[in-house]
Design a protein around this nucleic acid. Structure first.
Lengths: 221, 221
DNA sequence: CCCTAATTTTGCGTGCCGCGCACTTTTTTG
DNA sequence: CAAAAAAGTGCGCGGCACGCAAAATTAGGG
């Protein structure tokens, strides 16, 4: 059996992936210009030309569909990390792998920034978004553990979680501000992490009680 | 009007808080021994002796109710941090505040560990759980920014996110393993963060491809 | 080319949920 | 104590997740 390039995956598999992809992107596209609240599962299904019931064979909620894209974006990170040169220090490898991954697609599209911002306002969606990041985090931790030897598994998880934190903070900053770029900020945050926490030590303490204070209890927004 | 100690808050407020608390705890308790999937909103409401409709005046889902406890647990962290001695280095202050907060209640209850584990298996709940941590993170970032002066706000968010990462990793490790304690692990993770990432550099690279590899794409569990 | 088994899609039914709205009950205020 | 403010409640609607079983599609040989 020579290497079948085109039908590398059993056609069936291809259609599945394609359907999944189509659903996810339809979900995102619709959510982006109607607002997720005005998108019914039925709409997404119809858009792709598939039964509503089928949608739920792939995703268990529209939020999950939207966020599955986040996961897919990190698909290549594992290989990117494992492909880093053998002797490279771990942290450098991780940092480069992450940056590489995010450079692949260039700066995220500025045009939709406002819509993304309001999209992320949806509480349920934020939950799924964080879930997606958590999923990525697991894989990243695994990969790190694989690259280094039998090192403490907890530390791998910590490092992965930390990296994802940086990505998340950079991303939130990206769509909450109007003009700041994504990649340079991400890189800076990663560098901060590398050197540890003391960087923040300087500065004037601000004991003014009249600073904005989020209630925390009531609405956990 | 002398300082009314008992009705420090306008009675109305007290009843509200109490109701909220009652609902949250009922939700947790029921979820813990039936499994969240077998708990209807109606059950929680009935347990507290309140209309199902009222439940939704406080929480917009049972998952949120359960996780609101996570938020409340961090209620004191702001004051704990602001109460740290004036000259103390920022990181030390943060670390101590966090540890202090978690020491207050002692080691989390070992008895329920298995049930907590399976509770966290619920995907929707994990989303809310992460949301709750995100809420805490916001407040923590604010508080950090308040303690230090006009320091880069991004770095504050990064630090907060990082700290929450440590807490989360420690917590997950706690309920996924059978005997490991929570606090010492948390403290260790915080220390790792302080010194930066290089700690993990040592160890034998493991190029064995037969390590468990999570699919990532399909089920994002 | 066709037949059979495996897999996917689909339709339908069910139970539950979130929430808007209007109404009742409780708490506050003057 | 009466009027106002705020919380609780009942009802109803649109929607969602999912189990189940029938129909459609694909795979892999004869």
């Amino acid at each position: 059996m020579p290497p079948d390039e085109p039908p590398k995956l059993t056609l069936r598999e291809r259609k599945k992936r394609e359907a999944r992809r189509a659903l996810a992107q339809a979900a995102l596209r619709l959510a982006l210009d109607r607002g997720l609240e005005n998108v019914r599962v039925e709409d997404i299904a119809t858009e792709v030309g598939v039964s509503p019931r089928t949608f739920n064979n792939y995703f268990s909620s529209k939020e999950q569909a939207v966020c599955s894209i986040v996961v897919d974006r990190h698909e290549g990170m594992r290989e990117a990390l494992l492909a880093r040169p053998e002797g490279e220090p771990l942290w450098e490898a991780v940092k480069q792998a992450v940056i590489e991954q995010y450079s692949r697609e260039g700066e995220p599209d500025r045009a939709y920034v406002a819509r993304i911002r309001e999209l992320m306002g949806q509480l349920m969606l934020r939950g799924e978004f964080l879930n997606a990041h958590a999923a990525v985090e697991r894989v990243l931790a695994e990969t790190i553990a694989k690259r280094v030897g039998g090192v403490d598994h907890l530390l791998c998880r910590l490092m992965a979680a930390t990296v994802e934190s940086a990505v998340r903070v950079a991303f939130v900053n990206w769509f909450m501000t109007e003009g700041e770029p994504f990649l340079p900020i991400l890189e800076r945050l990663l560098d901060e992490l590398a050197t540890g926490m003391p960087t923040l030590t300087g500065g004037e303490p601000n004991r003014n009680p009249n600073t904005t204070t989020t209630p925390l209890g009531e609405a956990l927004c």
